[in-house]
Design a protein around this nucleic acid. Structure first.
Lengths: 206, 206
DNA sequence: GCATTAACTAAACGTTTGTTTAACTACTCT
DNA sequence: AGAGTAGTTAAACAAACGTTTAGTTAATGC
């Protein structure tokens, strides 16, 4: 019985490190987060971090990779295939907002990476972001072809749509200080999707 | 004659420090930029930084303050008073984009500050951001009152408008990797204002 | 039950950081 | 001309950082 229990209780140090690091990187950024801090939060020795990851940067990169894999899957699963263009757009908005709301830490890590113009940003764009962008772009292009949306620069509007969504999470610290207290109590997932959907659809409708 | 020349040539160290620090903070962020680096770029001794500013953080805060003062002035000057609501919105978009295009470093510094949830962010919002937000908000509210814009949540749309603008600068490193090369050559100030204006106005039109 | 590997630890390493000190010019005012 | 102040410098400070080392404990396979 000791065998089984120890297997259950046994803490998977690598995963504990990843979880702790994710929170700390999101809160404080890469540079301001020390390896000792990560180890402390994970309840393990500093050297363990270097046992599983070669460098602090490799750990960071690992977290970003996991995040994008997770999101790309959500996006593919969340957008209905047989639907019309407007419904697909609504799905996209819903998936983005729902995911970001539950993974704020991930968004902040990637945002920091973007601003920092890190060496990895090229790889990240090619491997992940451009795929997600193309998926949304193709929905809008399809809508234009079918006449659901008017003729316009679909590349720019794709960027604007994603921009309208991400912006709320990017500037959330400022947003919660600007909107009224009663609305502040409602989770962002309740009022934001419809607002962005209406604004965007009216702007591109045929 | 030596007098006059020395007066002309005499480098104003404080301003050189501010200029050098602004560029470096924007490029690398607060933590990754060292005081020695700033001094090196400014061509002065490290101790000079501490002669003019008590700490590295005070220097940083000084740069942010100057930036917001400069932008708030541009916004007040750039928005025509006697115009209709749509024209005023266009002015707002134009001022934001023009300013951000010429002061990308400032935007990145403030963006970092926002993400970092720094202790100063409360002060910054109260002192600067909320004022600018209210200015844009009042234009939209006026438009709704006059019937130029439809009835809707004007707080949210104000945020969305500013969001659509800022997003292009926040995610510019990704944007330039996604859009077509021929469009990439044009400065953002040429195609972006009209695009955002059309998208937004169609979305809120009465 | 013993050897081999994996998981883990305390302590130390060299480097870099923000900041301070104390001394030195150069200019201004009297 | 000489005191006083503003501007500037090289050198040093302690603290904190990412990373490594050498050694210990726990689990596994034969």
């Amino acid at each position: 019985m000791a065998d089984k229990k120890s297997k259950e209780i046994k803490k998977n140090s690598k995963e504990v490190i990843l979880r702790s690091a994710k929170v700390l990187f999101a809160m404080q950024g890469f540079e301001l987060t020390t390896v000792r801090e990560i180890a402390g939060k994970a309840g393990i020795n500093v050297a363990m971090v270097y046992y599983y990851f070669n460098t602090k940067e490799e750990l960071h990169q690992n977290i970003i990779d996991n995040a994008f894999k997770s999101f790309s899957q959500s996006l593919k699963e969340g957008v209905g295939q047989g639907k019309g263009s407007e419904d697909k757009i609504y799905d996209v908005i819903k998936v983005y907002i729902t995911f970001l709301h539950h993974h704020k830490d991930i968004h902040r890590i990637i945002l920091r990476e973007t601003i920092s113009q890190s060496k990895h940003i090229d790889m990240i764009v090619k491997k992940y972001i451009s795929r997600n962008f193309d998926l949304v772009h193709s929905i809008i292009k399809e809508g234009v072809q079918k006449g659901t949306f008017r003729e316009h620069d679909s590349t720019l509007s794709t960027f604007s749509l994603i921009g309208m969504i991400l912006y709320y999470f990017t500037y959330e610290p400022i947003f919660i200080r600007l909107i009224s207290p009663e609305k502040r109590k409602k989770p962002i997932t309740e009022f934001l999707p419809d607002h962005i959907f209406n604004l965007f659809i009216e702007g591109v409708k045929g």
